[in-house]
Design a protein around this nucleic acid. Structure first.
Lengths: 248, 248
DNA sequence: CGGCGTATTGATACACATCAATGATTGTGG
DNA sequence: CCACAATCATTGATGTGTATCAATACGCCG
């Protein structure tokens, strides 16, 4: 059988979970709708009661928190191969927003279908849950980083994390570069600094020979140096997990 | 039937999910072990492969991230009535630690049993998942706050959040005080500041008539003022949710 | 009583924010 | 294809919130 668009979602789940052939088939036959999204568009607004989730095929989606004064903070990034908001299946009323950071194509899958498949196949429900917990682990690390690391280390840590995730997605070139289509202001919104300071930090990493970041591409020049600077340990990403059986 | 110790766990799940009588009974008959924990003790260390979760009955449990240099950051707090680490059922290998912040009594429930009950009752699995997603929403808000709010607003926001959660747990007195047995250093580890600065911030809130924080008790004097100072909006806590049926 | 974690306070240093201005890009409609 | 606008990147000057260092006082427990 030829691999449908949902094969990559199955691959994603298989990263951390064991699914039977029947379960895999069930995921593959989920109804889904391919959508092209233009940048600078809210996929989901704060407080929405949502009814669908989105699997990212290309592009970049960000999860935002926002204060009443309009200050925004990116709380999570979703690169191709990841479900942007699977957790909303369990709790459809969001307290955050999803924003399209660069032109993206996504697969829209209704919560009703996702919930139904989880209801029928406990192993799939657990795989979904597990995916969300892995997300939590990343958020946990971000809290630590934003609170405790200076700006350069924050940026270095972000680059190390993205390198692992893009590598997992098969989107990392051999010379350690990857497409990362964001503005400096969006990087600032991830790191929790101003865009001015993000600019200086980016320049500093460039001048010190660690990495070159343009508006479209990140090129890592000294990965070991970045890892040292960031005190990076990839285990929180749970990407090389020995698969855990669906039922303990 | 008299309410067993697990009744409060059922209550917790019923906060956000609908469970049938049979499902409630299943949760109530989960094997569990009551444990007294002394303070300053790691319940779970970073990188542990865990095999049980803990329902907090009294006391306070914190989730930590930690850098190699020993700097720690509290990433989540768990007060009585909450599951401290339910998410570990789905992903037992932790990238964080759980630490007993003050003498606590907990109910230890094995992951095997929790997974089995979720496997048998999809509605329970969904309720567990939903509980974790609510946790994520809190983390999301913390990321925003740590990144974007000045220290006083951070502290005010924490107090507002704790007020809601203690109220939910039935542990808030009518004059807006609650037992909160932590040191100033631990408050600093939540807010992402040094203990010296936490001290000054606490003093400032006291002198400005917002709240009095001692090592054991928090007493809120001006809740509307705190809400304004923190720009607090409780919806992210998902505490007054209209219950969502187990299957969409 | 002594010892140790905790709280408090002051002096100083620095990372990052803020304000402001100028280039560089990108996009868009005439 | 150019002109214009809008967004984004870059840089400097200045201000401020928080860290750091250091000392003292407090409270609890053995």
């Amino acid at each position: 059988m030829s691999a449908g668009p949902l094969q990559k979602l199955v691959d994603r789940l298989l990263l951390r979970s064991v699914l039977s052939d029947e379960e895999q088939q069930a995921v593959l036959s989920l109804p889904c709708l391919e959508m092209d999204l233009s940048a600078k568009r809210d996929l989901i607004a704060i407080g929405d009661r949502t009814e669908a989730s989105y699997f990212v095929q290309t592009g970049l989606i960000g999860r935002f928190s926002q204060g009443r004064d309009g200050v925004r903070q990116i709380v999570a990034l979703h690169i191709p191969g990841e479900m942007a908001d699977l957790c909303l299946v369990a709790l459809p009323k969001t307290s955050w927003a999803f924003h399209v950071l660069s032109p993206s194509t996504v697969l829209k899958i209704s919560h009703a279908d996702l919930a139904a498949i989880g209801d029928r196949y406990p192993g799939i429900a657990l795989a979904f849950w597990r995916d969300c917990v892995a997300d939590m682990a990343v958020m946990s690390e971000w809290i630590f980083g934003i609170a405790r690391r200076p700006a350069e280390a924050k940026l270095a840590h972000l680059l190390c994390e993205l390198r692992c995730r893009y590598k997992q997605a098969g989107l990392l070139t051999t010379d350690d570069s990857f497409t990362f289509p964001v503005t400096q202001m969006q990087i600032a919104e991830v790191l929790g600094v101003t865009s001015v300071h993000a600019n200086r930090t980016i320049r500093s990493l460039r001048e010190r020979g660690f990495a070159i970041i343009t508006g479209t591409l990140v090129r890592l020049l000294d990965v070991p140096g970045l890892i040292r600077l960031a005190d990076f340990d990839a285990s929180y990403l749970h990407l090389d997990e020995r698969k855990v059986s669906t039922v303990a």
